[in-house]
Design a protein around this nucleic acid. Structure first.
Lengths: 328, 328
DNA sequence: TTGAAAGCGCTACCAA
DNA sequence: TTGGTAGCGCTTTCAA
């Protein structure tokens, strides 16, 4: 159906090699022949077949992106940046969403390998040596983001622990006597190979921050309305709630509204990720701006560097900062 | 590097064809030979090369998705559904984001065609016969979503006009005397080949609805703070503002808060799309729930039907409804 | 400057 | 039940 190099060659009375030279402006071809070939190609509406090219050259100019979901605006923003950056460099992305399911993640990686993607950007929901070994055997450049797998894989993210600990002292510096932490449920029932690195780091940061500020540690494992309300009602003095991510903070905001508590006068509130939507919510929540743009760009660039065989590629800690709000 | 069918064949002392029969469990192979081959394949950690397979068979089991962005949660949700549905059916998606730029959209389509995607799901930002002809020449199954290109391409979406007109009478039925419409700026300066079908339909719906209810038509072209505030301040009676999409409505909410207007007592408000985040915003905005899940599934299934050569595939109007809120 | 041909890894068809 | 082989459309190398 589609016209191939072979036909162009036949039509121009030259060999396939010559057509290839013309089409990909390689050297060793007479200007005149080249022109003639290009004209016929144009006229015949020639379109290269990327599959054949990829099979012959061994690279697809495609990277696989394996992520949890894109409903969460943190991930969608990040992936948007990755896509943009990749495109600028002539790379396409195959996107696979795993809903944080181990089986889906493993399958995704397997299929992407079969498709010979040049590299992989992974938001891993899995960890462990079996997993790591499988990835190594793939022999594909990999960059991890958000959750870390091991030191064998380049990891790009903000230093969650540090910024979270900064967040605690920031809140403390605003005169709060108590700073509780609302986290996902990180207690025992998590499978050994479930990767919750990012949340783990954030919690470490909270703990470290609380220690440094001499604050009592209060951690809520999961969004438990009653315990949160109790905390607001029963804690004496100025109290705040630091959340492991914005969505929790926004939900707490709703809870407060329902129960007649005012933010920040009854309870100070701070999130993490600085989702775009915070700009549209009142009061504007304090949050941690994770510098998504930079994270995405660096993730892709580190991957590209690996693809190009650079040996000195290493992890990157992305700078981030506390974004302004009215909730403290 | 990677082990190929050829090597498995050599190791097992059979032909490539036989290995192929074993690997893809085709008929015409002795159970014993098959077992032996599969074992060696397993042992050698054989992984099929999808590129070669695609080149040989002529289909890639990949579809291209060309969309504006995934920052907007309406699109990201839709794409998440499309990705999920595609994966269920063994298809992968290459995602290209265009920021509604014509050049980017055209390039995206060209590259996806070179990559021999089996089909295309397009959120078009372009229209016109030149464009339509280019698409037809591609000879790839296409489904359009959100914006329509022409009757030559299957289009999946809710009936924006009808539901928007319903929205007007819904608001009217709640006792509002005036219903204004906040839209994107659709005045003259839009290029002829810029596709704004969806917004156009919505506006038509507003106009029709206003006519049917005997309401004066008031349309704001673009988010103009001053005109909106003026409208709220100067309009006598019970007034509402219907927005062409949620983001506008959320912004109006912010504007009202800034200026001390209460929703719905000072002004009724309604959006369109029913973004997830509305659940976290107070007051809960009335909106149009576009049934994203259904839209995404049907879009992919229609594409798949086309890919499979079904001839009776046609447009689908997705049912949608007004979601409950407290803003009217 | 050009041609010829081998190969990339797989599928599919015809013979044996 | 199996083998052999000609493609798929391109790149790349060696020779002319």
């Amino acid at each position: 159906m589609a016209v191939s190099i072979k036909e162009i060659a036949r039509m121009c009375g030259v060999s396939e090699g010559t057509v290839d030279r013309a089409l990909n402006n390689r050297t060793g071809i007479k200007e005149e022949t080249k022109k003639r070939i290009l004209e016929t190609a144009e006229k015949m509406n020639y379109r290269p077949n990327h599959l054949a090219k990829a099979l012959a050259t061994g690279h697809t100019k495609t990277i696989g992106v394996v992520c949890f979901n894109i409903i969460d605006s943190f991930f969608s923003s990040l992936i948007e940046v990755i896509e943009n950056t990749a495109k600028e460099q002539g790379y396409f992305i195959i996107l696979i969403l795993t809903k944080s399911k181990k089986a889906k993640e493993l399958e995704a990686i397997k299929y992407l390998a079969e498709r010979k993607v040049d590299g992989l950007i992974l938001f891993p929901a899995v960890k462990g040596t079996t997993y790591a070994n499988m990835l190594k055997k793939l022999d594909i450049p990999i960059v991890t983001i958000y959750n870390r797998i091991s030191d064998d894989f380049i990891h790009i993210d903000t230093d969650c622990a540090s910024i979270m600990s900064e967040a605690v002292s920031f809140i403390h510096s605003k005169g709060y006597d108590t700073v509780a932490y609302l986290d996902i449920d990180l207690r025992g029932d998590i499978p050994k190979d479930r990767n919750v690195y990012s949340f783990g780091e954030r919690r470490k940061g909270y703990i470290r921050g609380a220690e440094e500020c001499g604050l009592t540690q209060i951690i809520f494992d999961g969004f438990d309305k009653d315990r949160i309300l109790e905390y607001i009602a029963d804690t004496p003095g100025k109290k705040a709630l630091l959340c492991a991510y914005d969505t929790f903070a926004v939900r707490v905001l709703g809870l407060c509204r329902q129960h007649g508590y005012k933010v920040p006068s009854d309870i100070g509130l701070m999130g993490y990720n600085n989702m775009d939507v915070l700009d549209d919510i009142y009061p504007r929540l304090y949050s941690v701006d994770c510098n998504i743009r930079m994270t995405g760009r660096i993730a892709f660039c580190s991957l590209l560097a690996q693809i190009r065989g650079q040996k000195d590629v290493g992890d990157s800690k992305i700078e981030c900062n506390i974004s302004y709000g009215e909730s403290l």
